[in-house]
Design a protein around this nucleic acid. Structure first.
Lengths: 338, 338
DNA sequence: CTGAAAGCGCTTACAG
DNA sequence: CTGAAAGCGCTTACAG
């Protein structure tokens, strides 16, 4: 308990709490020598102001909250990893929560964090979310919101994303260059922007190479897991449509599909070339290994936090930020499945 | 920001802040009718006390911190997942940090969290850590420490672990029952308790079936990743010792070893049966799929948090807790590699 | 059963 | 350049 506090330092140095506090917060109106004495002493005893007490005056808690839609997920994981790496070195501490792709939980979590007076919330919107009032509430409380990965265009805040449309274009183009002309696409639901953008990237590639689009080749996979991939592949085969390529929006979908193909003596990549998305660790250990799009999760995590810092300092200066959408580059990793 | 506060409620209800606060904190000396009025009003406006302000009096922040040694790691991930699932439903909020297996960072993080006045710290000790004064500091500050997975026996606090020795016994016994008599063991470093216990479980199984122990069959893999597995297998082969089984302390080690064996025309499981540890998601997608020990990460996450709650309430009542080591059961998952 | 008052550890407008 | 004092939003010992 007995942690050193401002008054202890004031007493030890025969100064007032005011002066100590001024030094701590970088106020200019302190004598250079006094400042040095205080700084030296503070370093010696390792003092840091109690953020809970400071908050009462400053309304800053030096905490931020990261909300992930899923936890056991390589991409979200690497975002967390990247963010922690740099945020741990700052004075900020990090709350983490998981919406589990639930709108209700997402709303609750945001309200909880606002009650905790976090300085910022970093959010990838849940799959279920259709209403965005809870995001507006963040701004109403004067807090900073940074959206990442699954964003909502109509909300005015910084957004950090992968250039999904381009990444998907490249992935599909790769299949075309391998000779595929009848390319299946296992896409996500209709709503999330990433799902739309990846679909558009696929369309872009077909267009560029004058390959006719056939909507029969599109399959919706809400959960983007192995099971969905397996059953989408099954549906594709049973539909009677022919195919020689597959571009999916997740590695797990690709894995599920490959499992189905194997079972039905359809060879990968001989009969069908497959490209996944996300470069999950397991995609390099499957048989065959999976061609996929590497998303820079670590970098995204770093960018989110840095963007928050920039946003905060702009806000303090009363400036309006520009260029609020940051698109990170991705990379196609070619492996055995294509 | 105009969030409702105690004084607003007091004014609206024509009561004193004292009374409102008493209702909020469950004090008995409040008239039942008054209590009801307050409670109803609080529910209506959705009031919750500002924890930062409360802290100044109560010294409780209603925050806990989870320190993970690694982030991109299925097991630690599932611990985080399990813990969040239940903790999110409580009034607590969750700090997360990653020591990255570094003693220095671990020390810094703990000191940072103590300065933030967290109510508890949940820690799996880093691989590098040899000194435990920073853990004692947690107790000196009157905070609760719960160790999990990588624990230190000499620290007096609740510890949540897997029954590693038994799990390893079962895994090794499985190999023996499959006919293996010359079983390699890729172990972790000398220090972490889990590494010792898994080694002992391996020895137990040999003993039970009267199989002579040969220390030439033990290989130390500090990092427990694919690379270490690959090179340990290489060393084993080059050493000239013969083998027909392999028990490793991680799935990645098993994968690396299998890659080496494949390269050298050693068939798995025909020539050598392999068992991993942890049941990482990828272990069921490799070729061959890997027999492994499933560790209940989600359950461990829940138990850690529940243990904290128990510990806290015992402490409040001034009671000393007993039975401070909780061993969770694990399960052998048999797949193609054995 | 109710409330006035002190105090938790800071910050900051203000006076000197 | 320095410091006394008020106040942030709560809790709690105490008086009535």
């Amino acid at each position: 308990m007995g942690r050193t506090k401002l008054s202890d330092i004031a007493k030890a140095l025969e100064l007032s709490k005011t002066t100590i506090s001024k030094v701590l917060n970088g106020y200019p109106d302190v004598n250079a020598l006094t400042r040095k004495r205080v700084l030296d002493y503070i370093k010696e005893v390792g003092f840091e102001a109690n953020t809970q007490a400071s908050f009462l005056r400053t309304k800053e808690t030096k905490t931020v909250a990261l909300i992930l839609p899923q936890i056991s997920h390589d991409f979200f994981n690497s975002i967390l990893e990247g963010m922690l790496k740099i945020a741990q070195q700052t004075e900020y501490t990090f709350y983490v929560a998981c919406s589990n792709e639930s709108y209700e939980l997402e709303t609750k979590l945001i309200s909880k964090f606002l009650k905790r007076n976090v300085d910022a919330i970093f959010l990838s919107i849940s799959r279920e979310t259709r209403n965005f009032d809870h995001l507006r509430a963040i701004h109403e409380e004067g807090k900073i919101l940074v959206l990442y990965d699954k964003i909502e265009k109509t909300i005015d805040c910084p957004k950090i994303i992968i250039d999904d449309r381009k990444a998907s274009f490249t992935a599909t183009e790769h299949l075309i260059k391998k000779g595929c002309r009848k390319i299946l696409h296992f896409r996500g639901g209709f709503l999330p922007q990433i799902s739309i953008d990846r679909y558009l990237g696929y369309r872009d590639a077909l267009d560029k190479y004058d390959i006719p689009f056939d909507k029969e080749r599109i399959f919706i996979c809400e959960n983007a897991n192995e099971k969905d991939g397996f059953f989408a592949a099954k549906k594709a085969l049973e539909s009677g449509i022919d195919f020689d390529g597959l571009f999916t929006i997740s590695d797990l979908l690709a894995i599920g599909a490959i499992q189905f193909f194997k079972k039905n003596k359809i060879q990968v990549p001989e009969d069908i070339s497959v490209v996944g998305f996300s470069n999950w660790k397991l995609s390099s250990f499957t048989y065959p290994t999976i061609t996929t799009v590497d998303q820079p999760g670590n970098l995204m995590g770093e960018k989110i936090f840095q963007t928050f810092l920039t946003e905060k300092s702009l806000k303090k200066q009363g400036l309006d930020p520009e260029n609020r959408e940051i698109k990170l580059p991705s990379k196609l990793i070619i492996r055995e499945s294509s």
